[in-house]
């Protein structure tokens, strides 16, 4: 679906995700102030910044979990401000959570099937009486769930409860669940958090494979190594404001960014 879009990357008119003047205040505190972003189809776009810079709030505003105080969010050329999160998901935007939010008592497979919810049709009647159409749909969804679990390397864990999986595998299950919504844009909130070096290398491979399948990726990350190796373009937030944007090399050389991170060893933080 997004492969043709990708050819147009760079043209601002067709940015897959376009955020303008995005602002969110909590009481007197401005968590996100006037942020502009343009994510082109096919990119891996990184959103970085020190702790408390407003990255996750930004995600919540984009995906509809929080209403913005001001600003516009356009996805695929259509305004999505004020849409309920499930509508945003149905339009092709999926996300993971920084503090993993799996459905713990459900198996890995069931978690992925929940992700496929918006792509399935079975209602109360069809679900109860298992009409032929529903049986076919369910069988196809299960097959796809297994493929997604294989993709993230969880093929062996399909029938295990999500809560019992080790931390790194839970993160990957969240990605599989998000992929099941069949997104055009996949938003990952610190996917490498808590992973060791080899795990995060595998993760980078996975994200590249996802992009190769035609998806666009927007990710928040703390691990500079991951960001610099993976992203095509990076935006930096500090105190809710965007202080820089550019290629990884440009960002690494940007004095404002160095200032924001001064005295901190962020590749080791978290």
């Amino acid at each position: 679906m997004s492969a043709p879009d990708r050819a147009q990357g760079g043209s601002h008119v067709h940015s897959l995700l376009r955020v303008q003047g995005l602002t969110r205040r909590f009481g007197g505190l401005t968590a996100v102030a006037d942020v502009e972003l343009a994510v082109e189809a096919g990119q891996i776009f990184g959103l970085i910044g020190p702790n408390g810079a407003g990255k996750t709030t930004c995600f919540n505003l984009i995906t509809g979990l929080l209403p913005p105080s001001a600003g516009a969010v356009e996805f695929g050329g259509r305004s999505i401000v004020g849409l309920a999160p499930h509508r945003v998901t149905a339009l092709g935007m999926a996300r993971t959570f920084q503090n993993i939010r799996l459905f713990g008592a459900m198996t890995a497979r069931e978690n992925v099937l929940v992700g496929a919810h918006a792509r399935l049709r079975a209602g109360v009647f069809g679900g109860i009486f298992r009409t032929p159409a529903v049986r076919r749909e369910e069988a196809a969804a299960r097959e796809r769930a297994v493929r997604l679990l294989d993709l993230v390397g969880l093929g062996d864990a399909a029938d295990l409860p999500a809560a019992g999986l080790p931390y790194g595998r839970q993160r990957r299950l969240e990605i599989a669940r998000a992929l099941a919504t069949e997104p055009r844009l996949l938003c990952l909130d610190e996917p490498a958090a808590g992973m060791n070096e080899s795990e995060s290398r595998e993760l980078m491979d996975l994200i590249r494979r996802i992009r190769e399948q035609g998806m666009t990726v927007l990710l928040i990350e703390h691990d500079m190594h991951v960001v610099m190796n993976l992203c095509d373009r990076v935006a930096v937030l500090n105190f809710g404001q965007k202080i820089a944007e550019g290629s990884p090399a440009e960002i690494q050389a940007n004095p404002a960014v160095i200032e924001a991170y001064l005295g901190r060893d962020d590749s080791a933080a978290d």
Binding site: T63, H86, T89, F103
Partner: peptide
């Protein structure tokens, strides 16, 4: 599945398209 998802974590459920 939608019921269970909502019961477990309503925010995550809505983010998954429910």
């Amino acid at each position: 599945r939608a019921f269970t998802a909502i019961r477990t974590d309503e925010v995550a459920a809505s983010a998954m398209g429910i």
